[in-house]
Design a protein around this nucleic acid. Structure first.
Length: 298
DNA sequence: AAAACTGCCAACCGCAGTACT
DNA sequence: GAGTACTGCGGTTGGCAGTTT
């Protein structure tokens, strides 16, 4: 038996993220950045709760670091549990990096992307993060999954097809010449042509009907930003979030200006529309008795 | 119709690397 | 240099959805 995970030890939530958790995490990171993954989930719900209730003044109600007593911590954990972000930092980071962060390209892979992945894998091996760095908008996890579910099979099948034809048809020019040159092993530089040739022999399976299918189809490239419904990232920064390395407790306001679309509108609140945050909190009936001007235009 | 099987992908786990004290 | 905390990476798994029997 392996040792139990941190999440198991601490009773934190595991498994699939709910939309409410996504909204909470997104709203928090958009405002503060991911200054410390380990500490982030501990304070996310508390900060957003205070902002929601008291506007920016709410931040002033945050305790200084030296004031965070055990009873404070218990209260925070209780609050986080109530609000649904009782996740370990690692889980938050993974969710943000692989799914929630802006500019993630989802949907089918183009032929060019597949070619690039195959070439890069031949060059770099299973260094998925390095491969992902060369494919804008794709995450290492997504590329890894795509490789294992689609590309690896195709490369294997291509090899089998090639090996099953010991006498190349010279009439087909390059195909025949390459087959005769690489009977058992394939030079990295030859992999892409082999795959492309195999595509003519092995039909590419049609795309799934799922919105977020990662299967390959070269008819179109679907780019969906998961955060389009939350905010207009282009107004915030190139990445749409803040890298913050300061002390959160002592300098909570330093990133204040960078998250705002303009002077009056926080990024996760559209004027008088129901914000993701508001939606997330709605089940708790927090609107009752609140000043709507304060809530949406603080 | 339902059970069994398969494919896919989000999420988890454990380790390595890095920064800091 | 040792110890600790944290982040990032790659391998693996669990669960869902679709397909087959």
């Amino acid at each position: 038996m392996g040792r139990s995970s941190i999440c198991e030890k601490t009773g934190l939530t595991r498994g699939t993220w709910t939309p409410e958790e996504d909204r909470l995490l997104t709203a928090y990171i958009k405002r503060y950045g991911h200054w410390n993954w380990r500490e982030l989930p501990k304070y996310a719900a508390l900060c957003i709760w205070l902002i929601f209730l008291f506007g920016d003044e709410g931040l002033g109600r945050l305790p200084e670091s030296e004031e965070v007593t055990d009873s404070n911590k218990i209260a925070m954990q209780s609050l986080n549990s109530e609000l649904g972000l009782s996740r370990c930092g690692k889980s938050c980071r993974l969710r943000w990096m692989n799914y929630l962060r802006p500019n993630i390209k989802r949907g089918d892979y183009t032929r060019e992307e597949d070619e690039l992945i195959i070439n890069l894998h031949a060059e770099l091996g299973n260094r998925w993060s390095a491969i992902a760095a060369r494919l804008p908008g794709r995450t290492d996890n997504e590329i890894k999954n795509h490789w294992h579910t689609h590309l690896q099979k195709r490369t294997k099948r291509t090899t089998i097809v090639k090996e099953a034809k010991p006498k190349p048809n010279i009439e087909h020019g390059a195909v025949g010449r390459r087959e005769s040159a690489v009977p058992n092993c394939v030079h990295p530089n030859d992999i892409t042509p082999l795959i492309l040739e195999s595509s003519a022999v092995i039909p590419i399976s049609p795309p799934k009907s799922s919105d977020f299918s990662s299967s390959s189809t070269y008819d179109s490239e679907v780019v969906i930003s998961e955060n389009q419904g939350i905010t207009d990232d282009s107004e915030i920064s190139s990445d749409g979030f803040i890298e913050y390395d300061g002390n959160f407790w002592t300098e909570p306001f330093l990133v204040e200006d960078s998250y705002k679309v303009n002077d009056t509108m926080p990024v996760f609140v559209n004027e008088y529309s129901v914000s993701p945050l508001a939606e997330a909190l709605y089940p708790y009936d927090l609107y009752n008795g609140c000043d709507m001007d304060m809530l949406f235009n603080y």
